[in-house]
Design a protein around this nucleic acid. Structure first.
Length: 217
DNA sequence: CTACGGATTTTCT
DNA sequence: GAAAATCCGTAGT
């Protein structure tokens, strides 16, 4: 939060993004999601995260995507929905990853939210609480963990889901108009602040592994 | 800061 | 039965 130069955003600032924002090309949406605020109502109350890193998954021809070659299964079904729907999947036996679909229905594009920073102090406290709680379930002691968790609060797709209380219950949700799970305007971001790089963790994707479809601040 | 291995279970073949 | 859009602790530079 301090590290990326963000000041706390006031709670309730901005307006929710509508269908028209998400029903566009996935690469454009991904870049523009940087600086926006993901909002989720959790058991601890509302948690708001400024989006700082994303990746695009661009449909049936993208070898890095779960939907490559038109693969349509129970898991990938939400990816085929129109822009603005959530796609949350379980991975590596332990973690969740959360996407928001982009483009039109039937074209399975989505943006993976890889990293957020707390938008305000209350959100920071709630993220820390959820991350500590998850770490305790793995049998750790809070004293040793707090420092490392504070340093890596939500800087990865699995950590982001833990910190914002996102799991399978949040899969396949149409986020447009939802009061408890949505994206809203945040900080203005200039295009020169947006960096790009190769997507993470898709070494199997041949030439698609080299596409510069990861965007971050 | 990078590199490596283990954890753990759903999903798909 | 194998792989996985990851994370964490440890060890080394």
């Amino acid at each position: 939060y301090a590290g990326a130069g963000f000041r706390p955003l006031s709670r309730g600032a901005g307006i929710m993004l509508g269908r028209e924002f998400f029903c566009r090309d996935g690469l454009a949406v991904a870049k523009e999601l940087l600086g926006k605020v993901l909002v989720h109502e959790t058991k601890l109350g509302e948690i708001r995260g400024v989006i700082t890193e994303v990746e695009s998954y661009m449909g049936v021809n993208d070898k890095g995507s779960h939907t490559y070659n038109g693969r349509r299964t129970n898991r990938t079904e939400p990816m085929f929905r129109e822009g603005g729907n959530s796609y949350v999947y379980f991975t590596y036996g332990m973690y969740h990853c959360m996407n928001i679909t982009t483009g039109v229905e039937g074209d399975p594009q989505a943006v993976l939210i890889r990293s957020v920073e707390p938008a305000d102090e209350l959100s920071r406290e709630r993220m820390l609480k959820l991350r500590l709680e998850a770490a305790m379930k793995r049998g750790k002691k809070p004293e040793e963990l707090q420092k490392s968790i504070e340093k890596h609060l939500a800087d990865g797709p699995g950590k982001m889901c833990i910190a914002m209380g996102i799991d399978k219950a949040d899969n396949a949700v149409d986020m447009i108009g939802k009061p408890d799970f949505y994206v809203t305007e945040g900080r203005s971001v200039k295009s020169e602040q947006v960096k790009c790089g190769k997507r993470i963790g898709i070494d199997y994707a041949e030439e698609a592994a080299d596409y510069l479809w990861r965007f971050y601040l």
